[in-house]
Design a binder for these strands. Sequence first.
DNA 1: GTCTATACAACGATAGAC
DNA 2: GTCTATCGTTGTATAGAC
Lengths: 201, 201
Amino acid sequence: MADERGGRGRPRGRRPAGEDTRATLLAAARVEFTERGFDSATVRAIAQRAGVDPAMVNHWFGGKDGLFVAAMEIPVDPGRIVHRILDGDPERSAEWILRTFLSAWDADGGGALTALLRSVASHEGAARMMRELIGRVIFGRVVSSVAPDQLELRASLCGTQIAGLAMIRYVIRLEPLASADHNTVVTAIAPTLQRYLTGVL
Amino acid sequence: MADERGGRGRPRGRRPAGEDTRATLLAAARVEFTERGFDSATVRAIAQRAGVDPAMVNHWFGGKDGLFVAAMEIPVDPGRIVHRILDGDPERSAEWILRTFLSAWDADGGGALTALLRSVASHEGAARMMRELIGRVIFGRVVSSVAPDQLELRASLCGTQIAGLAMIRYVIRLEPLASADHNTVVTAIAPTLQRYLTGVL
DNA sequence: GTCTATACAACGATAGAC
DNA sequence: GTCTATCGTTGTATAGAC
């Protein structure tokens, strides 16, 4: 009864090893989340782009939220950034931080960053992730190793300048900063960041 | 029957001339779009806020899109802000700018600002409006009256610090900056802004 | 034979259209 | 006020890897 193995659809059951559905979904999710933002991106569209069933999102990530946090890795690797920053002269930390962020963001034209900011603005969960990422992982560790006094205030101040640069350069795209080369940006902004890191507040 | 002019609900049928349903809808739409962004704002909620049937949105604006484009005119008065800022000592402009923005943003707990940033991040039209608002109307005029050299670069740099402060303090809510009083914020950030305005870059 | 990744169907909610 | 489209999610049967 109801056997009906007529050719429609993909075959059920476990697919051959090597067809990594999870990774395919992640890639599709990054595209959709980037282009449409968290709310407008649909699980169905992501699944369709990945060529799999929407239920796979639930199976692999527990739902749309899980897929989001899995897909939206920060466009920079915090560990590497911190490490690279701490290897140099503390009085030149600001310049390194800026160059690291600029390189990471410009790598894909700011697409991933724009998506991240969009998600941060519209999704409280993303904002919370961002909060802990900035405060603890990135600037918290950087600041604690260069200027232990007023650690948290310094970290959040650094956050303002970095987040603001991201907003103006990649989201609002205000000229001339949107098209300025890295040296120009560093010359203008590094002193600010350096003061937030090690200067007198 | 069901005349019931005394209590809840509005009378049916054509309303008397002068009760501008269209304008009421526009006002309600601005509130909802501002608070929730385009996607999350619903026609039903807008109509309910206006005390009007959702069908009126279709009748007057042809749908949600039409209502949006009709509603999204800039509801702020940048002129007053600029005027107040320019009345003081040029070397104290940064402090005035910061205090003006902080007061405006804190007035409603940052709600309107969060909504604005959300719209900017998720809607290209809002980003374009923001671009011109920051670059030309606000900082363009401020900077041109204090330091005419590298006017646009200075304006966009001011934009980074202001936008970043907004992001960290009201959207991401990173402590201690999120709860810091105005004096603390001014002490920390005014020097940055002052350098962007009149300092050496 | 067992486990599990998978496809399919359907549900309840919600929002825009008419 | 009703209709319809679409969303996220859940349940279940099944095919293939192990």
